[in-house]
Amino acid sequence: MGLASACKTVHVGRHQKHLKWSKDEPPVLTISSGDTVTFDTIDGSNGQIMEDSDISVIDSFDLELADPVFGPVFIRDAEPGDALKIEILDLQIANWGWTAIMPGFGLLAEEFPDAHLKIWKLDRESGFAQFNDKIRIPLRPFLGTMGLAAAVKGEFSTIPPTDVGGNMDCRELTAGTTLYLPVQTPGALFSCGDGHAAQGHGEVCGTAIETPMRATLRFTVCKDCSWVTSPHFQTAPRTTETLSLADKGRYSVMGIDADLLEATKKAVQNTIKWLVATKGLTRAEAYMLASVAGDLQIAEAVDLNNAITMSLPLNIFDSEANDVCPP
């Protein structure tokens, strides 16, 4: 029997979750290199926010319960110095999701002290989430969290990312992408969660379109890859067939400051101003839209002041008028 025919597909269920990274977390599954695993995950709220929730749920939200991960999976023959190759084969989202502004959380937390919650209907057939009657967001599912156990002993929050992955919230980790993570402990101990239906680069308000997800991943141990000391990934080529909307270009807003974080905040603040002035949104709506559809990028970081851009694709808007100062 050849290696390919010996590989199998197995499953991790919603009940097989944990809230801390630890190399002492007992694995729920043991697999071999080349095997495929399906993961049924609930959303990043850990079920605290539901399809019928209203704004009152934010008042009782327990951050200690947020960002559950599902696993861990022990991969035979994975040893420190190796890399774990994770092929993202398929990502299936629920028919609903949520985005929230939570007091004290997000890039502009000091400017948005009040709670806001948006429950989305996700039209998986058409491939869109409707923001309002003039703005729709293409669905681009990905797992916000994929990671391994670190070598250090102890229990660690699932919220911050680390060199072995975790809550990276990288929108490029969608179906067709291959992720490589450095193995620091025997068996690697892989877990994942935090399904997103769509997100901009930056997730600036602190949440994307959060949703339950079924993920299908294939694992391969790459021996002696000591140069992989942080998450690496390779995306698949995008073709016009994969684009759900015709490209209409992007509108970008820049933030300038000697401090990189302050320049980033300015880029987002200026984007919010543009959206409020030209798209008829409230500041809270503009902040959430920037989080699920706006992309942050460093334009330059060498000329004393940093230049950060935030851009939005113009094809999400029904209107053809996208000037900063419309007549």
Rank of each mutant, 00 (worst) to 15 (best):
T264S: 13
T235P: 03
S252Q: 10
S252N: 13
L275G: 01
P237V: 10
Y251C: 10
Y251H: 12
I256H: 06
K273E: 15
K265L: 06
R250H: 09
W274Q: 02
N270A: 06
L261G: 03
L281W: 00
P231N: 11
I256T: 07
T271L: 12
Q234C: 09
K273N: 13
L260C: 07
E241K: 06
P231E: 12
A267D: 00
L275R: 01
I256G: 01
T282Y: 11
L289E: 00
L275W: 01
S244R: 12
K266F: 04
A277Y: 07
D257A: 13
L261I: 10
L275T: 01
K265M: 09
V276F: 02
P231A: 12
K266R: 10
K265P: 02
T239P: 04
L275V: 07
Y287E: 06
T282C: 11
G280E: 15
A267T: 03
A277P: 04
K273F: 09
A246M: 14
D259P: 04
L261P: 03
G249P: 06
K273M: 12
K279E: 15
A284N: 14
S244Y: 05
W274R: 03
A263Q: 04
K248S: 11
P231C: 10
K279H: 12
V276W: 03
L289R: 00
K279N: 11
I272P: 00
R238V: 14
M288S: 04
V268C: 04
R283T: 14
G249Y: 06
T235G: 12
R250K: 09
A286D: 11
K266A: 05
K248H: 08
A286E: 06
Y251I: 13
Q269G: 02
L260R: 08
T278V: 08
E241D: 15
S244D: 12
T282I: 11
K273P: 02
D259I: 08
A284I: 07
M288G: 03
L260S: 08
P237Y: 05
L289C: 10
L245D: 06
T240R: 04
P237N: 11
E241N: 10
L289N: 02
K279G: 02
V276D: 12
E285N: 07
L243Y: 10
G249C: 12
K265A: 05
E241S: 09
G255S: 09
D257Y: 07
M288N: 02
P237W: 09
I272E: 00
A284F: 05
L243I: 13
E262H: 06
R283E: 15
A277N: 13
T242S: 14
T278C: 14
N270S: 09
L260I: 14
F233E: 15
Q269R: 15
E241V: 09
